[in-house]
Amino acid sequence: MYPRAFDYVAPETKQEVLDILAERGGEVKVLAGGQSLIPMMKLRFASPGTLVDINRLSGLDSIDIQNGHLRVQALARHSDVVRSDVVAAENDAMASAAPWIADPLVRNLGTLCGSVAHHDPEGDWASVMLACDAEVVAESRDGGERVIPIAGFLVDMFTTSLQPTELVTEVRVPRYRRGGGNYQKLERKIGDYATVGVATHLELDDAGSISNAGIALTSVYAHNLKVTDAEQALVGNAPSVELFAEAARIAAAACDPTSDVRGSAEYKRDVVRVFTERGLTASLAAAQG
């Protein structure tokens, strides 16, 4: 690869990273897994002045339960999520999505936090996080720690509300008592971006009615799309085939895909409908299982 020239620093401590971010701000890119950043630099689509490699930081690679949340720290790799017993026990949507992220090689280096912070509109994790009402935790030298709800974090494609001086340290999702989730993805081959991706999450009350619902879509809008209308159509109702079909219709109507080599807009919209139904059915089975 032949990127433009750049400075490379690899600090040992988080404080040093935050110092560099505070001092150099906008010309800095943080390197965690590098699975999106490095290809962009290789093609000279991105040319950061300074690359801050955070891989030498310790204590930043956990996936665990903290304060009622399932927490994924900045250096936890996709493959750690795939293998995590905590994720398998705690969050079906994440467990379902993890094996669909890129390919095994990318998963061994790429990180969930990096994927969310990169906010490629075709990224899978952001949809899962929107469906599960995640929060992003960021730190800066002068501002300390900031907790940002995912919907407020994801601004537009490749744009987030993260400040140039801030480092994403973790992404976390609330625990749930009785629920289930799922991720459906259509890809042309392993490692491909989704043609269509649908994340679903359901929580049930003691009577078996839907108490909380999350639906979010990948690759069918200018950014990952949380379909609030479809979620609201579900909440308070007993799950049924008809109800799921109605939510799927709302999701299909809400998306705005473009026609490209992956398929026509009409096709993608119909796959959103098919996947939303399949995802909700699988989520319910997981919740009841």
Binding site: L43, D103, K189, I190, G191, Y193
Partner: peptide
Amino acid sequence: TFDEAGNCIGSNFMDYLVPTAWE
């Protein structure tokens, strides 16, 4: 494939697909 202006769609292995052992 190409768009109407003759831009090549498929200029890297993200867009020009080579199957892996997986598929």
